[in-house]
Each structure stands twice: as structure tokens, then as C-alpha cells.
Design a protein around this nucleic acid. Structure first.
Lengths: 246, 246
DNA sequence: CGGCACGTTGACGTTTTTCAATAGCCGTGG
DNA sequence: CCACGGCTATTGAAAAACGTCAACGTGCCG
């Protein structure tokens, strides 16, 4: 695989916002190598010994049931870490796959472990990433358990917008969405057909535009009202009282 | 129902299994005070400044939508930590509520933060708890997104069995389940009525017994086959190669 | 040009929800 | 003691949401 490090480097890591430049560099310095992972290839390292930091592109994490049903639990966007749990604590029966050519940096598990011993702040940043994960998954559970198709869709599009905005790759209320309707279905626990129909009615109602690979949220207020979206859980602040401790 | 309000102190914390007795005691020593929380009361500390360690009883974490729909994201069992994210990183719009009289120990947020600076192994244990959380939530997402009612039910009952077993409060394949069918419905993203019918058919098929507050898994093999249950994600081992590092 | 992946739409089936009614349990107050 | 209300479990009938099957269109690419 090409270990070319071109350099469309992300503006920000999706870690604690209070990390300063030097700390971010410290994280980036742990990256042994950067490489491109092609669409359809797995993002987990073969032996699960590395955490990956996505520098560019989209990936997703999913579980495949024996009869072929698939559930996507998470989209991984530029600036996101992935594989922390698998790397520190063992295997996982989820798969992480690149949805397009991705630029990925790898951090050795032992270097992450070292952070706990030598860099408390960075260890806390890793824990924050894990906690943010948990918060997004909790919202995902709420969507799948108690929101209908339109509400789920609105929530997904708004959450993706928030996340992409925080790494600076949206254009106002529009952003690139390089995924198929099948993936949306597998994320939202719906069938492809129903996703298609739901998008159609939302488009007909003027809530959004949706073209191949591109979304424009035309009525973000209305969309938020539909699903009760709130982006607080994505925010990267450490509790103020703890800032001086760690 | 369990009238065990007194002091059957949990056998194990649900943390990294490699913590030794002294380390567990170290965690317990952080607990400023223990108290009983009555059924229906909230388990979050008023100011979110404490992490809670559940010593006895059941609690659950849920989100309430504006129109009254509720989604339970997690059951908190004896030995579980809760509130780590809220405490370290800020507020959350989820509520944690005692389902019966619970014995709870509180750990100050700053003491948890201190662990990152002074006790890397314990900090890693906290991170492990967060990662285990994430794994359970991922499975929950899979259930809600891609499993039908019977599969979800089987998965829930098996997962609860595994978790209770690991803290030593099951009797073979039987355990106390001090929750209503409404809570099961709010966990599994189903209606009460459908939960009731689903349990009925599973009972009729001889898969389980279900009486008020009590479950017996009569055909655990069959139940596992129904939902593809696997308990690996609940296991508390640190990656072997890292044991010596942290 | 053909093949392929993806999106779109209609007709129909299934799962699950909603509404409604009943029954048991339990504590409370008369 | 009993009547009563509140909560939970249970069951039937009808409706709504969502899935499946199948067909067709469209754009891309070799």
C-alpha cells in the first residue's frame, strides 16, 4: 500500500478541545506510518495492535449477522480515532471498513498504553474519545428504539453535519455524503426501500436536498424540531473544575 | 422480589479483571460515602460531580423524548460504575434512576481525575469500563436495528444473565429480574403489548420461564442460537501484551 | 455496447403499534 | 372487614409502519 503522505491534513483532531497544539503534535508524532486504505478494505489492523486515526475520508463500523443482515453502528470521519477498545482490551466482532480511499495514521497499542503512564492529559483525551463514542451510541439507541423513520433520518443528517462542521468540512448547511442509501438503511435499521421513500417525502416537504453524494439541509430548524436534535454530546470540553487537575 | 437491602457487598467490581485486591480496595477507598437510594430516585448526583458505584440493586439510564417516549439505554447492575462521562466531561440529557432501593457509593470527580495522574492502571480500568459500555451499546444498536422482537428479547435476557453471573448473583440459569414489562419494552424499542406477546410465545415454546421478578432460561443454547449471543464483549481482560506496560 | 451498482416506484405481506377491555395484586382508607 | 384506585399483566381487534418482491430507470465504466 502506498505510504504516501500527501497532506490534506485535517484541521483538528476530534479529541479534547483543550489539547493544545503541542499535545496534538505529540499524538501525531506517535503515528508510525500513514497510508491510504482503499474503498472496501478493512481499517482494522490485522492483529488489532494498532489504533487508527483517520486523517481523510469516511469509514464505518458494522456488525454482520450470520444471515447477512448488517448493522452499521458508527461512521468514522476525519479526525476520529478508532479501534481503541479492540486494541487495549481485545478482539471485537465488528468490522471497520473504508467507504472511499482513506488516509489513515496508525498508532501502536503500546504507545497508547504508554500515554496512561506518561501523559495523563493525553490518556484523558483517549478516554474522552471513548466517552464521546458512548454518547453517540446512546443517541443511536434512542433513534433506533423510539424514533420513526423520518425522525431517525433527520437526526442522522444533523449529527453528521455537526461532526463534519467541527472538523471544518461543511459548506454552511451542505456537505458531501459519500454513502449509498443502503448504508443509510443499515445505519438506521430500515430497509433500502423505506429509506428511499422517507428521503423522497422529506425532499418533497422541502426539508432537504439529496443528490448523489451530497446533502443540503434546507430547513435545519425544522429538522431539529422533528427529532429533538441537540449537539451537546459531541462537544469536547473537559469539566471546567478538572481542567487544572489533569 | 429481592428484599436484600442489607449489605451483601458485591463480590467483584465490574472493572478490569486484572485489578488485584489492593487496587480494588484503592477504588473503594475513594468512596466518600455510601447511601441508599430509593426506587424512583435519581442516581446522578445533583451537580454531576460524582461518579457512582452501584453496590447493590438495579438502576437504569434512559432518555425521555418531549412527547413522553422513553428509551432505556442501559441497566446498571451491582459492581457497575456510572456517570463517568457526565462527571469528567459535562452534562448529559440522560437520566439514571434507581429501580429499587440501591446501595450506592460516590466517588468525587476530582478523585477520578487524579487517577489519570497518579494511578495509570486504575485510569485504564476506568477507560475499560467506558469501553465495555461502548461494546454493550453497540450490541444494543444491533439489536434495535436488525433483530426482531424475539431475537432482541433473547439477547437481553442472555446479556443480563452474563453480567449478573460475573458478579455472582445468578442461580444457574435463573435470576431475579426486578423490572416491569414496560421497562423491557422501553429497552428493546417495542410496545408493552408486543413484549407481552413475545414473552408468551417464548414461554409457550419452552425457551424460558418468566414470572414476576424472576426469569429462568430453560433453553440457553437455543436462546443463543436465536440471537447469536456472544459474551466476549463483556470480558474484562486487558490485552495480554499490555499487561506489563500499564 | 453490455454489465453493474444504485436509485425509484408500485403492489402486497408482515411485524409491530394502538386502542380497548379485563383480570390480578396490593396497599389505603372508611 | 370491604370498596376503591393504581399499577401491572394479558388478550382481542384493527390500524399503521415498515419490509419484501419485483420491475424499471439512470449513470458510469470497461
Amino acid at each position: 500500500m502506498g505510504s504516501k503522505t500527501q497532506n490534506p491534513l485535517i484541521e483538528k483532531l476530534n479529541l479534547l478541545t483543550s489539547l493544545d497544539d503541542q499535545e496534538c503534535r505529540q499524538i501525531l508524532n506517535l503515528c508510525e506510518n500513514k497510508q491510504n486504505v482503499e474503498r472496501g478494505q478493512y481499517l482494522s489492523s490485522p492483529d488489532e495492535d494498532y489504533v487508527s486515526l483517520l486523517l481523510d475520508g469516511w469509514a464505518c463500523r458494522y456488525k454482520l449477522l450470520k444471515d447477512g443482515r448488517r448493522q452499521i453502528t458508527r461512521f468514522i470521519l476525519p479526525g476520529d480515532l478508532s479501534g481503541v477498545r479492540a486494541c487495549l482490551f481485545g478482539i471485537s466482532d465488528f468490522t471497520t471498513e473504508a467507504l472511499m480511499t482513506c488516509q489513515v495514521a496508525w498508532i501502536r497499542g503500546r504507545d497508547v498504553a504508554d500515554l496512561f503512564v506518561n501523559s495523563p492529559r493525553l490518556a484523558a483525551a483517549i478516554t474522552w474519545a471513548s466517552a464521546r463514542e458512548e454518547a453517540m451510541l446512546s443517541e443511536h439507541v434512542v433513534s433506533l428504539g423510539r424514533r420513526n423513520a423520518r425522525e431517525r433520518m433527520a437526526h442522522l443528517f444533523l449529527e453528521l453535519h455537526s461532526r463534519l462542521e467541527s472538523v471544518g468540512i461543511v459548506d454552511r448547511m451542505a456537505y458531501e455524503l459519500p454513502i449509498t442509501q443502503e448504508m443509510i438503511a443499515d445505519t438506521l435499521g430500515l430497509s433500502i426501500v423505506h429509506v428511499n421513500r422517507t428521503i423522497k417525502t422529506m425532499r418533497d416537504d422541502g426539508l432537504l436536498e439529496y443528490r448523489a453524494g451530497y446533502v443540503i439541509l434546507k430547513e435545519p430548524k425544522e429538522l431539529s424540531k422533528i427529532c429533538g436534535f441537540n449537539s451537546d454530546h459531541l462537544d469536547g470540553a473537559l469539566h471546567p473544575q478538572l481542567e487544572d487537575l489533569i
